[in-house]
Structures are given as C-alpha cells and as structure tokens.
Computed example of a mutant assay.
Amino acid sequence: MNKKLRIAGIIAALAASAIILTSPSQSPPLPPPSQSQDESIQVLATGLKKPWAIAFSDDQIFVTEKGGNIRVIQSEVLLDEPLATIRAAKIHGGGLLGIATHPDFMNNRFLYVYYTYSENDVLWNKVLRITESNNKIQDTFTIIDKIPASQFYNGGVIKFGPDGKLYVATGLSEEFSHESQNPESLEGKILRLNDDGTIPNDNPFTNSPVLSFGHRDIQGMTWDKNGNLFASETGPTKNDEINLIRPGQNYGWPEQECGGNKKFVDPIMCYDPSIEPGGIVSYNGDDLEYEDRLIMATLRGSNLYNLEINEKELESQKSILSGLGRIRDVMQGPDGYLYVITSNTDGKGFPDKTDDKLLRILK
C-alpha cells in the first residue's frame, strides 16, 4: 500500500504557590456513574470538562482537564476534588495537556504534566514534575520551560519511553513557523530528556534535548514491542500523519505535508480528508485481540481505530469503537484493557448531559 494512501474519514524549581492553586486536604468520592448498555464498555467517570490525557499508577488513573485540573479515579470512582488545579492559560489549543507517571512512580510518586501559561502577555509551555502523596501535592519542580506556545498549536504529549527517558512533543508559536526547521529551537520538535530534565548524552544533537524536528502538532506517541516510536500528528485542514520517528530526522513542516521531498522523512500514513488524530498506543497485552497493533483515537473521525502497521506503511485500518463522538486519548491500563476519554466538551463536539467520559474497553 502506498505510503501516501489517503482515506476518508481525522511541555530550576518553581515555588508551588506560582503553579498550584489547590491541593485539597480531602477527596470525597462522587457516586459511581451508570454503566454503558454495551457490555464491552465500562464507564468509569462522567462529567469531565475538556479532558486531554490519561496516565496510570497501580491503583489510580490521572486525567488532565484543559482548564487546569488533574482529576483522579481511584477504585473505579472519580474523586470529587482534583489532585491539583494548575494556572493554565485558557486558550483553545492549549491549557493543561499531557500527563505521565514516572516508571518508578510507586516509589518516587513523580507525575509529569505539560501545560500552557501566559507571562507578560506571551504564551509559553512547560513541563512540571509534581510529587504526589495520598492525592495531595508535596512538591513541584520544573523539568523544561520557555517552550514557545500559541493559541492553537502546542503539541503537549509527554510519555516515558522504554529507555526510561521522557519524550515531549512541542508545538508552534504560529502555524507556519519555520522554527520547526531550526534544530536549535524548541518549536515543532520531539524532545528527549532524562527524568530530571537534563539532556541524555546519546541524543542526536550535542547538548540539545531535540530528538526530531519538522513537526507541526503531535497529538500522540507510542512505542511498539521492537522499540519503534510512532507519532500521530494533525495537519492544517487535511494531511494528518502517522510518522515513524528516527533520531535526528526532519519531518518537513512547514515545507512538506505528506511526503514527496527527499529532504524530509515521509509519513507512513497520510489522511485526506482529515480525521484529526488524537492519542495513539501500541497494544501489547493479551486481554484483547489487538496484540502488536496500533490503536488510535480520532476527534473529527469520531472513531477508535485498530491499525495494522509496519515500519513502511499502513496495511489495514478498522474501527473498533464509534458512537461516542470525539475521542481524545487512548491508553493501555495496567490491567491490559484499553482506556479512552471523549472530547465532546472541547467546543467542537455535541456533548450530552454526562460528557465527557472515561471508559474502559473490555473486549
């Protein structure tokens, strides 16, 4: 299948008072939500407001809301009070975005979040490390700051890779910014950092956090069983991409969309019209029949897709979930099941009275 196949369908310590507005002393639970009529789907939380990303510990699920709240689901119940409220910018394409738990979270209790903020009327993004204990904030530490931001294109995905490094997808100060082509800029990049924000010695550019460049607005990152890094990326109005990420490589934006220029890396998949991809995960469990497949959320496409993909091209794509409206993120939980959040309250959807939702896919 052609790589350009087009199919229908779319991130110095800071004082805690400058960041955290609330860290409640008590967290009484809300009543559990009613269950879906579909026995293959379990509803874990309702009433989420513009949720963006999911992260797990052994006994907690953390969900970010773009307005600044970190919500906690514990024992399958959404806690009434957020873990924290962060002073995030209230803008359409930014706010509190990505979240990740440290690989050794059960011992160090480190949470990492990516958010947009305003300083002297200039927008920036940063990655903050939060130390959590019993659903309270103990400490905060800035991992990386002064990532250029904009009203619309902020990237925001943060994940720990199989190498134990923190990967951060950044956005643009303006849509057609050529700084994504500048390896010395933090715009339009995937960054690779140690867990304390220092730069790994084996990064492709000396003394630089940059892993790859020429990106527009990455919305998902995942690694397959062979350690390959895949990223889902939205185009301007079309030409969404799935890219296989290699260290030091240039993925073209804004000079290239969807391939054709030998100066840049071509995507594995290009979508026209847009499906607006969200989060993406490589499923590696045995509880569901998706082993070694990529599972991708879509917003405009309103589906959760099962992708059979290799290092060169997409071989097949099938919908495994629809009818929920816009789907923002998907993750594999410690229990082996898939978890998704909807995004119908983001201003582009048609929310019902229970939106937005966190769901577990059981089969």
Rank of each mutant, 00 (worst) to 15 (best):
K3L: 14
I130V: 12
K348N: 13
E76V: 01
Q151N: 13
V43F: 04
Y153I: 07
D292Q: 01
A12G: 13
N107F: 01
L14K: 11
G227E: 08
N310V: 05
L229M: 11
S319C: 12
L288C: 11
S25M: 15
R360E: 09
I245F: 07
V168M: 05
Q42V: 05
L79P: 02
S173G: 13
T222I: 03
L362C: 01
I54V: 08
L314D: 09
N107I: 03
D286E: 13
C258E: 03
A169F: 02
G278Y: 13
T342F: 07
A89S: 14
R293I: 12
P32D: 10
R293P: 01
V330Y: 09
E291W: 00
P33R: 07
G98I: 07
H92Y: 11
I137G: 07
F160K: 02
I275V: 15
G323D: 12
K136R: 13
A84F: 14
F230W: 03
R328K: 14
S212C: 04
G333V: 06
D195A: 15
G285V: 00
E255T: 06
P32K: 14
V122I: 14
G220M: 12
L78S: 04
L44C: 03
E255C: 02
N2T: 10
K159M: 09
A100G: 08
N108R: 00
L111Y: 00
L83E: 08
A18L: 10
G301M: 08
Q74M: 06
L83K: 03
T234H: 04
I275N: 08
F350H: 09
P31E: 11
G349R: 05
R360Y: 03
E175D: 04
Q60C: 13
